[in-house]
């Protein structure tokens, strides 16, 4: 069975939701306290949402210097899939594992809502076969405005590193569809190798019909399938 590590920092709040959603996808999970993160023997790792270390200095800034992220970087460099959602995305950007930075929402409001995104890259273990699809997921963040220097934005677009782009109800990447002012409507990115992915929305919060949507489960199903264990084989 695929084994997925879920990192828990002081202030992380989506770790158990991810564990539940991943168990529905047929993965075995373990929540690792930030002081005890050893990733040998795991097939993938999740950096969930929350407020790691209270978001002190900047969201993700203190997590970046933690031994847990050093270990995560080693794991990612070995090509293992890593997903950061919300605060996890902020941490991956702060750690330099994804480009750019996440800053205060343009409207200053904390946004708690459902958003639509187009999947722009299927070159990741989370989105294989989903390129071009529009998905709906919840967001809950105050600092989700993705910003980068001009050269970085050009490189990100030229290399196809945008994985998720906010779109309006017609599927167009307009200001109306952009909840936080992110440059180029960026909702989520991958690294050049494609194994590290971050996004502001919460796939773990739309993983079963009871929660109002199941698009998050599609990403987690793709991950588990890419690790060689399909949900159907779990009961066998």
């Amino acid at each position: 069975m695929a084994r997925v590590a879920i990192l828990r920092f002081p202030g992380t709040w989506s770790d158990r939701d991810f564990a539940h959603a991943l168990s529905l996808a047929g993965a075995e999970t373990e929540i690792l306290w930030h002081e005890d993160v050893r990733l040998d023997g795991f097939d993938a790792a999740i950096v969930p949402g929350g407020f790691a270390y209270g978001d002190y200095v900047r969201a993700g800034a203190i997590a970046r210097l933690s031994p847990a992220i050093r270990e995560l970087r080693r794991f990612a460099d070995a090509g293992k899939p890593v997903l950061g959602s919300c605060n996890g995305f902020q941490i991956l950007c702060e750690a330099g594992m994804l480009p750019g930075a996440l800053t205060r929402n343009a409207g200053l409001e904390f946004r708690c809502d459902w958003v639509s995104m187009r999947i722009e890259s299927d070159a990741t273990p989370f989105t294989r076969g989903l390129g071009g699809e529009v998905v709906r997921m919840p967001i809950a963040h105050g600092e989700g405005c993705w910003v980068a220097g001009e050269e970085t934005v050009e490189r990100v677009e030229a290399e196809g590193l945008v994985v998720f782009r906010y779109v309006d109800e017609r599927g167009a990447a307009t200001a109306a569809g952009n909840p936080n002012g992110s440059m180029n409507n960026v909702a989520g990115l991958r690294n050049a190798a494609g194994n590290v992915v971050g996004l502001m929305p919460h796939p773990e919060r739309c993983a079963e019909p009871l929660l109002g949507g199941t698009d998050g489960m599609r990403l987690l199903d793709r991950l588990v399938a890419s690790l060689g264990t399909s949900p159907a084989s779990v009961g066998a």
């Binding site: 210097l65 930075a101 910003v147 220097g149």
Partner: peptide
């Protein structure tokens, strides 16, 4: 450089 400011922004 390492903590107090994010050089990107």
């Amino acid at each position: 450089r390492e903590l107090l400011a994010n050089p990107v922004v």
